[in-house]
Simulated assay, not measured.
Amino acid sequence: MITLKSQREIEGMQHSGAILAGAHLMLKDKLHIGMDTWEIEQLVDSYIQAHGAVASEKGVDGYKYATCISINDEVAHATPRKGLKLKNHDVVKVDFCVNWHGYQSDSAWTYVIGESTPEIDKLLEVTHKALYLGIEQAQVGNRVGDIGYAIENYVERQHHMGDVRELIGHGIGPSVHEAPDIYHYGSPHRGLRLKAGMVITIEPMVNAGGAWQIDTKTVPETGWEYYVSADRSLSAQFEHTLAITNDGPKILTSQDPVGDHKYLL
């Protein structure tokens, strides 16, 4: 069932999203070579709690952590792991959700540890641009396929990278994951029609090697399953929560009020 949110609900989710964005901005200044991924978990969880909210992922399908932390060829859903230290050139995806008084938000961001490389720069540039091409299609009257096609065309046809298909965006609020499913590939003018009041996530995952397929791996200590690129190439992800409105898509998890000005409430 797809729920359409009121203006009050969207504003509440925007407040939740501001807390989430603030946690990402905090991380940008703290990530460094030698940092333990468990410290990332603690920093994010503490930040969320200090702002009167809770980390929504805790307890979902038995998950125990505030964050998912996926490194290099890990595409998504990997856990923070005590003793796993960040290294120079690591490509780190940090994904988490925030619940502020029942209002949900969800956003993932990719960071480079230490020095970058031309390959990493290109991967992040393409993935970030793909997110915003998808957002631009999130207009009242458009269809889910318009979002997916914009991302797939840019990632695969223009840049010959792998546009992950098995992991998708989704509706959000009051639960973390709701209908509709938001695919990052597809055909224009196909699929569910977008309506004002929908709140969704768009979260393309891009593999540098050109293959979109993923494999499953397991964290030995816990048995938790996560995903890696099938060709073991570097993978990146960027994700925003956004509201579909009659005035266009509005990003609720913005970290950049200047660059995102046209997408803000």
Rank of each mutant, 00 (worst) to 15 (best):
T201I: 10
T201Q: 12
I202M: 05
I202A: 01
E203N: 15
M205K: 14
M205Y: 11
M205W: 09
M205I: 12
M205E: 09
M205A: 14
V206H: 04
V206N: 05
N207L: 10
N207F: 01
N207T: 12
A208T: 06
A208C: 13
G209K: 03
G209A: 08
G209C: 08
G209W: 02
G210T: 01
G210L: 00
A211R: 10
W212Y: 15
Q213Y: 04
I214H: 00
D215M: 09
D215E: 13
D215N: 13
D215K: 11
T216F: 02
T216I: 12
T216D: 08
T216G: 06
K217E: 08
K217S: 04
K217V: 03
K217P: 00
T218M: 10
T218I: 12
V219T: 11
V219W: 02
V219D: 13
V219G: 01
V219N: 10
E221K: 10
E221S: 14
E221A: 15
T222S: 11
G223F: 03
G223S: 06
G223M: 05
G223N: 07
G223A: 07
W224D: 02
E225A: 09
E225V: 06
E225Y: 05
E225R: 14
E225K: 13
Y226C: 00
Y226M: 01
Y226G: 01
Y227M: 07
Y227S: 08
Y227D: 01
V228Q: 00
V228W: 00
V228F: 00
V228S: 00
S229Y: 04
S229V: 04
S229I: 04
S229K: 02
S229T: 12
A230H: 08
A230I: 02
A230G: 07
D231G: 05
D231L: 03
D231Q: 05
R232E: 13
R232K: 15
R232V: 07
R232I: 05
R232Y: 14
S233V: 06
L234R: 07
L234M: 13
S235C: 15
S235I: 06
A236F: 06
A236M: 09
A236L: 07
Q237F: 06
Q237N: 15
F238S: 08
F238Y: 14
E239Q: 15
H240G: 03
H240Q: 14
H240P: 02
